[in-house]
Design a binder for these strands. Structure first.
Length: 475
DNA sequence: ACCTGTTTATTGGAGA
DNA sequence: TCTCCAATAAACAGGT
């Protein structure tokens, strides 16, 4: 059984949003595992008109799903998935596979760990441990994230309910050095993705709002699609190498560290943390848009593939069909200001550390349903949070969550149950637009937010062995 | 002129 | 082999 109760009424809009999520979750749970959901003071009997849209944000779900399929591991707080710190190493925890999003933070919890990676080995096809890459400083390797993923990351990092295109550019260039030096056509792809991917919603700029262009946000409707369970995994290569720099990379050829994913003839000596690589792959796989529900519009995510040569389609097309423009654009640095002054101020230094703690907690607490401008008072009386047998101390629960009580008890007769529960958590997060008030306050939050996906993994692990799961979240 | 946003076309990898 | 889809390129329109 999964029940959600709320003693603190959300704003109506929020409730409506949450209602959709919960209802969808309830439908899925009831369908698959007899789980029921109730939200006090909120009727969720109405059926949800499921949209065909879906975001590319399935990674949360799949992270947990994947982790649920591997042997249990001790709960790793702070040193988890994206907080890997090599034993005996004083180096900062490697970001999400050198995650630029977490670079610069003294401690970056929530990064992939070797354990996290290794325990996923049985369920991945790659089965090797590449080294580590710092995408924030390494311009040689193309980040293994799809554009949709990058957009979502930027949105996530912005801590805002909506984000401008230029802010997306800025975040990406600041956090992925590859794009700083890459042919700016990737920006075209970003725009293309925003327009085509239904998980992104354009929010027109108010007439009195200065600046160009509108804002973009994640479509909350994605949840239903996630809950439908319709998703498809795709095998993705871990990294892509900037072809312009491949020769330079070859100089560092180290046969002993040859990357099996390297294109033929290209050997790398990149330091790609194995678990980071794995998480990148899983992140990407999980992030890819649902490819079953709308073949016309599911222009979501997908990693490029080995061998990676720029202009997979376009440039080759130019070669085969002739350039419509007459010549291939020479790559130029994206040093031009992408943001207006106010936009810089708006976004702040997008360090982009994902606050997975808050993410999870938001998912559990229902804070995610906040509409723009809504604000939830800091929690009071938080005494205990137990997620699938894993206790989370109140200190770990971020302030700002609503007065919310989550009871989640799921019969785990099959994997579908796991899926739905994980989906619920994931979609609850994804439903969350960043509160506007926080936007004003958290312009610099991006620098400090942290990543902690290990909890999600480990939660998945911990629940794997449970015949029933109970989440008591008094927030 | 540049940016933003939409749309169309093409390519090639991956899965069915 | 076929289909799907992410990535890429580019044309185009509208706004600043």
């Amino acid at each position: 059984m999964l029940s959600l109760t709320s003693s603190d009424p959300w704003p109506e809009g929020s409730v409506a949003l949450e209602e959709e999520v919960v209802t969808a979750a309830a439908q899925a749970e009831q369908r698959d595992s007899g789980v029921s959901i109730s939200v006090s003071d909120v009727s969720i009997s109405s059926s949800v008109c499921l949209d065909d849209s879906l975001t590319s944000l399935q990674w949360l779900q799949e992270f947990s799903i994947l982790s649920a399929n591997v042997p249990q591991q001790p709960f790793q707080h702070q040193t988890g998935l994206f907080g890997h710190r090599p034993p005996g190493s004083d180096a900062p925890a490697s970001p999400l596979a050198g995650d630029p999003a977490s670079m610069g933070t003294p401690l970056t919890p929530g990064k992939p760990t070797a354990a996290a990676y290794c325990r996923m080995q049985p369920i991945v096809a790659h089965g090797h441990c590449p080294d580590e890459v710092d995408y924030k400083t390494n311009a040689d390797v193309k980040p293994p994230y799809s554009y949709a993923t990058l957009i979502c990351m930027a949105m996530q990092a912005s801590k805002k309910s909506k984000i401008t295109l230029s802010c997306i550019y800025k975040w990406i260039t600041e956090n992925f050095c590859y794009y700083k030096h890459a042919d700016p056509t990737w920006q075209n792809s970003i725009r293309h993705n925003l327009s085509l991917n239904k998980c992104f919603i354009k929010v027109p700029r108010q007439k009195d709002e200065p600046g160009k262009g509108g804002f973009w946000k994640i479509d909350p409707q994605y949840a239903e699609r996630l809950l439908s369970g319709a998703y498809k995994k795709r095998r993705m290569p871990p990294v892509q190498i900037n072809p312009a720099l491949q020769n330079r990379l070859r100089i560092n050829l180290q046969p002993s560290s040859r990357n099996p994913y390297s294109p033929p003839g290209a050997t790398l000596s990149l330091n790609i943390n194995p678990e980071s690589q794995q998480l990148l792959r899983e992140f990407e796989e999980a992030t890819e848009a649902d490819q079953n529900w709308d073949p016309h519009l599911a222009k979501g995510t997908m990693l490029g593939s080995w061998p990676v040569v720029r202009g997979r389609g376009g440039q080759k097309r130019k070669q085969s069909l002739g350039s419509r423009a007459g010549a291939i654009k020479a790559p130029r640095r994206c040093s031009s200001p992408l943001l207006s002054v106010d936009e810089h101020k708006e976004v702040g230094p997008l360090k982009g550390d994902f606050d997975w703690d808050a993410l999870l907690d938001s998912a559990l607490s229902g804070e995610l349903s906040l509409e723009e401008g809504d604000h939830l008072d800091p929690i009071e009386g938080v005494e205990d949070l137990t997620v699938r047998g894993t206790h989370i101390s109140p200190a770990e629960v971020p302030a700002g969550t609503g007065d919310f009580h989550v009871l989640l008890e799921t019969h785990r007769n099959n994997e579908v149950s796991d899926l739905d529960e994980e989906t619920f958590l994931a979609t609850a997060f994804l439903e969350n637009p960043w509160p506007e008030e926080e936007e004003q306050v958290n312009n610099d939050f991006l620098c400090t937010s942290t990543v902690n996906l290990d909890q999600l993994f480990d939660l998945g692990d911990s629940l794997n062995g449970d015949s029933s799961t109970r989440i008591d979240a008094l927030l």
